[in-house]
Lab assay of single mutants.
Amino acid sequence: TEYKLVVVGAGGVGKSALTIQLIQNHFVDEYDPTIEDSYRKQVVIDGETCLLDILDTAGQEEYSAMRDQYMRTGEGFLCVFAINNTKSFEDIHQYREQIKRVKDSDDVPMVLVGNKCDLAARTVESRQAQDLARSYGIPYIETSAKTRQGVEDAFYTLVREIRQH
């Protein structure tokens, strides 16, 4: 089974770092803004072998026109913010609204991801993020692309959301 996953969120929150940590098991430290990259990885989730087709997208506003296209083809979405960047957390709402509009559905598989949880300088409390996820009816997972904490959990949870859909 193949799953088309799309990673969305503001610029600099760590979308590529999360994806590369999942696929290649290493942490990319330097920031190089993405336009669009796709990665494929075969994994076993709950005993089922599946192929993850992951689209890593641009957070930069100037590429926002490309969003409709990949939102149409994606089956599930990782909505990523950084726990030390309140603005990126506030941006999640717009991504969710755009996904709902493009998919013409209120019920699209999504996982809210709070990345950079290895950093002490948190400005978005776990509780705020949990409340937001609960209001959307989606899971919330904290990750660190640096330490790998929660990385597999985030992507695998999204696959489970798609399966249950």
Results as ranks from 00 to 15, higher is better:
residue 125 E to R: 05
residue 47 G to Q: 11
residue 75 E to T: 12
residue 58 A to L: 01
residue 52 L to A: 05
residue 164 Q to T: 08
residue 99 I to W: 03
residue 47 G to M: 10
residue 53 D to R: 05
residue 56 D to L: 00
residue 37 D to I: 03
residue 78 L to T: 01
residue 137 G to S: 08
residue 146 K to H: 13
residue 151 V to N: 08
residue 69 Q to C: 14
residue 25 N to W: 09
residue 137 G to A: 06
residue 51 L to W: 12
residue 22 L to W: 09
residue 63 Y to W: 14
residue 82 A to F: 03
residue 66 M to E: 08
residue 74 G to K: 02
residue 6 V to P: 00
residue 91 D to I: 15
residue 33 P to H: 05
residue 19 T to C: 07
residue 33 P to D: 01
residue 150 G to S: 11
residue 54 I to W: 05
residue 89 F to K: 03
residue 90 E to W: 08
residue 38 S to V: 15
residue 154 A to M: 11
residue 91 D to N: 12
residue 37 D to Y: 02
residue 153 D to P: 03
residue 158 L to T: 01
residue 84 N to C: 15
residue 29 D to M: 05
residue 108 V to A: 06
residue 130 Q to N: 11
residue 143 T to A: 09
residue 110 M to H: 00
residue 158 L to V: 06
residue 80 V to I: 10
residue 51 L to T: 14
residue 30 E to A: 06
residue 70 Y to P: 02
residue 23 I to W: 05
residue 84 N to D: 15
residue 156 Y to Q: 13
residue 82 A to P: 00
residue 45 I to M: 10
residue 137 G to D: 08
residue 100 K to M: 11
residue 16 S to V: 01
residue 51 L to Y: 05
residue 52 L to Q: 01
residue 95 Y to M: 15
residue 88 S to W: 05
residue 160 R to W: 09
residue 139 P to D: 03
residue 159 V to W: 11
residue 39 Y to R: 01
residue 22 L to Y: 11
residue 6 V to D: 03
residue 47 G to E: 09
residue 35 I to A: 03
residue 100 K to Q: 08
residue 136 Y to P: 02
residue 14 G to P: 01
residue 108 V to P: 10
residue 119 L to K: 11
residue 155 F to Q: 00
residue 53 D to Q: 01
residue 49 T to V: 10
residue 52 L to V: 12
residue 126 S to D: 04
residue 141 I to G: 01
residue 162 I to V: 09
residue 143 T to P: 02
residue 11 G to V: 11
residue 48 E to T: 08
residue 144 S to Y: 05
residue 165 H to Q: 15
residue 8 V to I: 10
residue 117 C to T: 08
residue 150 G to T: 14
residue 38 S to L: 15
residue 62 E to I: 00
residue 161 E to G: 07
residue 12 G to N: 14
residue 87 K to M: 11
residue 109 P to N: 05
residue 74 G to Y: 03
residue 108 V to E: 00
residue 128 Q to Y: 11
residue 138 I to W: 02
residue 79 C to E: 00
residue 64 S to D: 14
residue 129 A to C: 07
residue 73 T to R: 08
residue 71 M to C: 03
residue 141 I to C: 06
residue 64 S to V: 08
residue 127 R to V: 11
residue 96 R to K: 11
residue 115 N to V: 11
residue 83 I to R: 09
residue 10 A to V: 11
residue 83 I to T: 12
residue 6 V to Q: 04
residue 84 N to W: 03
residue 165 H to E: 13
residue 34 T to D: 04
residue 21 Q to I: 07
residue 52 L to W: 06
residue 9 G to Q: 02
residue 147 T to G: 12
residue 58 A to C: 02
residue 73 T to S: 12
residue 105 S to C: 15
residue 11 G to W: 11
residue 11 G to H: 08
residue 5 L to K: 04
residue 49 T to P: 11
residue 83 I to S: 14
residue 82 A to Y: 00
residue 14 G to I: 00
residue 58 A to K: 07
residue 157 T to S: 10
residue 133 A to C: 02
residue 19 T to Y: 03
residue 144 S to K: 07
residue 72 R to D: 06
residue 58 A to S: 10
residue 104 D to A: 12
residue 104 D to Q: 15
residue 160 R to F: 03
residue 13 V to T: 13
residue 13 V to L: 09
residue 158 L to Y: 00
residue 97 E to W: 03
residue 90 E to T: 11
residue 85 N to D: 15
residue 116 K to A: 14
residue 28 V to Q: 09
residue 43 V to A: 15
residue 137 G to Y: 00
residue 73 T to V: 06
residue 142 E to S: 03
residue 124 V to W: 05
residue 26 H to K: 01
residue 146 K to W: 15
residue 105 S to F: 11
residue 79 C to N: 06
residue 6 V to E: 04
residue 132 L to Q: 10
residue 49 T to N: 11
residue 89 F to I: 05
residue 19 T to P: 06
residue 139 P to W: 01
residue 39 Y to V: 05
residue 84 N to Y: 14
residue 63 Y to H: 11
residue 96 R to A: 14
residue 5 L to A: 05
residue 119 L to V: 13
residue 132 L to D: 03
residue 112 L to Q: 01
residue 163 R to K: 12
residue 129 A to N: 06
residue 154 A to Q: 01
residue 34 T to I: 02
residue 39 Y to P: 00
residue 116 K to E: 00
residue 34 T to M: 02
residue 123 T to Q: 10
residue 132 L to C: 05
residue 90 E to A: 10
residue 7 V to W: 07
residue 121 A to S: 12
residue 119 L to C: 15
residue 74 G to E: 00
residue 144 S to I: 08
residue 132 L to W: 14
residue 89 F to S: 05
residue 100 K to Y: 04
residue 98 Q to V: 09
residue 149 Q to A: 11
residue 133 A to V: 05
residue 7 V to G: 03
residue 116 K to P: 00
residue 70 Y to Q: 00
residue 9 G to A: 04
residue 66 M to Y: 01
residue 24 Q to M: 13
residue 137 G to W: 00
residue 80 V to E: 01
residue 145 A to Q: 03
residue 70 Y to S: 01
residue 32 D to N: 04
residue 137 G to K: 04
residue 134 R to C: 15
residue 94 Q to A: 07
residue 158 L to G: 01
residue 31 Y to T: 06
residue 17 A to W: 08
residue 118 D to M: 00
residue 121 A to E: 05
residue 34 T to Y: 04
residue 20 I to V: 07
residue 1 T to C: 11
residue 50 C to N: 14
residue 2 E to Y: 15
residue 76 G to T: 05
residue 92 I to K: 04
residue 31 Y to D: 05
residue 126 S to T: 10
residue 161 E to M: 11
residue 54 I to K: 04
residue 139 P to M: 02
residue 26 H to F: 15
residue 156 Y to T: 13
residue 107 D to A: 08
residue 17 A to H: 02
residue 154 A to C: 09
residue 113 V to M: 08
residue 14 G to L: 02
residue 86 T to D: 12
residue 112 L to F: 03
residue 77 F to L: 02
residue 80 V to W: 02
residue 80 V to P: 01
residue 133 A to D: 05
residue 154 A to V: 14
residue 3 Y to C: 09
residue 123 T to V: 07
residue 139 P to Y: 05
residue 139 P to V: 06
residue 110 M to T: 00
residue 152 E to Y: 06
residue 71 M to R: 07
residue 132 L to P: 01
residue 29 D to G: 13
residue 162 I to S: 04
residue 82 A to D: 15
residue 139 P to T: 09
residue 112 L to N: 00
residue 128 Q to F: 10
residue 152 E to Q: 09
residue 160 R to H: 12
residue 150 G to A: 11
residue 75 E to Q: 06
residue 36 E to T: 06
residue 27 F to I: 07
residue 17 A to Y: 10
residue 63 Y to V: 09
residue 71 M to G: 02
